[in-house]
Design a protein around this nucleic acid. Structure first.
Lengths: 189, 189
DNA sequence: AAGCTCAAAGAACAGCTATTCTTTGGGAAC
DNA sequence: GTTCCCAAAGAATAGCTGTTCTTTGAGCTT
């Protein structure tokens, strides 16, 4: 039999995240993608078919490996501490880099419906997660009583998108960490 | 003497905004830019020099014609109503389209220092504007007394960036208008 | 009206980019 | 050890993209 493939799809996708983060979709050229993913052209097109199909796979992988583990905080629903933990990890993720999903949505969302759908789904999930945590926080008297949960969840969703943009501008400063504290403190009971 | 140029630089820049909003910088091709700006190639390169130099001009024009008139609300500093007016106009601007400045920052910010500088400047201006309005609002008892001004301004800045992203996903719905009300209401006295 | 200058239109070009094809050689199976 | 299959590497290709060049003719000046 023939030799086995040496590359790991997982690893290729992980390496590609960084390239798309740096240059966006249209700015990332195949030569760099091939080089930095430690892949080879033939294998690339056999595995993924096209640059665009590849992007969708990278996005899916980014969500699974980078965003999902952060969402877990919200989904395990421990009230306000979950929200704090979520933001702490999210900021760590986007600091000096931005968020791949947000970057791709702003670059291609107008033209690309699948990308818009993924973005919307992510936003819905975020909102639901926050609502759950705020309800729990209210139950357990962690958050100010009388808090408008729907409006607050919306507010937190906006912080997330806003951080994704600010993270690119703020570089490696801890501007965002300070902001989180300032933003979440008013919620506490 | 020779005939005079027929095109108006102002108009070319205005038309280009739409093209960059739809496809981003790298996704916008010269053929479409030339066609939709009602310009001609030779004139284009005489006037602007290159696609990249053109982008900076378009960005500058976008800020002057689209963002500045909205910032005026904050700078005339009439307290809370100024903030409301700001968001009303901003949402009108970005609805279904997004914000060119935010889109360009997320697409090219990592690679392009001038773009990052413009983005940072815009963010600073926004924060200063909000702080001014909140101070005035506090003076005039329009906003809740004891409000943490710095933190609230930060919060409002995040709403702005967040809206720019959400606007692409929300399309033409009035989701954002409803969100504004929910977000600003808690500030009122 | 005639001549001249430069804007408009778009053809041409050079370099780049996504994709495909060719060659090479590593290693599994016997 | 030999054979053979397929992965790796990268050369080749076709089409696209930013930029420049050529041609044409509109309108200002006299």
């Amino acid at each position: 039999m023939a030799r086995k493939a040496l590359y790991s799809v997982e690893e290729v996708l992980s390496n590609a995240i960084q390239v798309f983060l740096e240059h966006g979709y249209n700015g990332a050229v195949m030569d760099e993608i091939i080089a930095r993913t430690d892949f080879n052209r033939r294998g690339f097109y056999m595995e993924f078919g096209s640059k665009q199909a590849f992007l969708y796979r990278v996005l899916e992988h980014y969500i699974k490996t980078h965003l999902d583990p952060i969402f877990v905080h919200l989904e395990q629903n421990a009230g306000l501490p979950s929200i704090h933990a979520f933001f702490k990890d999210y900021i760590q993720l986007v600091k000096g880099r931005g968020c791949l999903l947000v970057n791709i949505v702003t670059e291609m969302g107008f033209d690309d419906e699948p990308v818009r759908d993924i973005g919307r789904h992510h936003l819905d999930r975020l909102e639901i997660g926050f609502i759950g945590c705020l309800e729990k926080g209210l139950e357990q008297h962690q958050v100010k009583s009388g808090l408008n949960i729907e409006a607050t969840a919306l507010q937190l969703c906006n912080y997330v998108q806003g951080f994704a943009v600010t993270a690119i501008l703020a570089g490696q400063t801890d501007e965002l960490d300070l902001a989180t504290n300032a933003l979440l403190e008013p919620l506490a009971a």
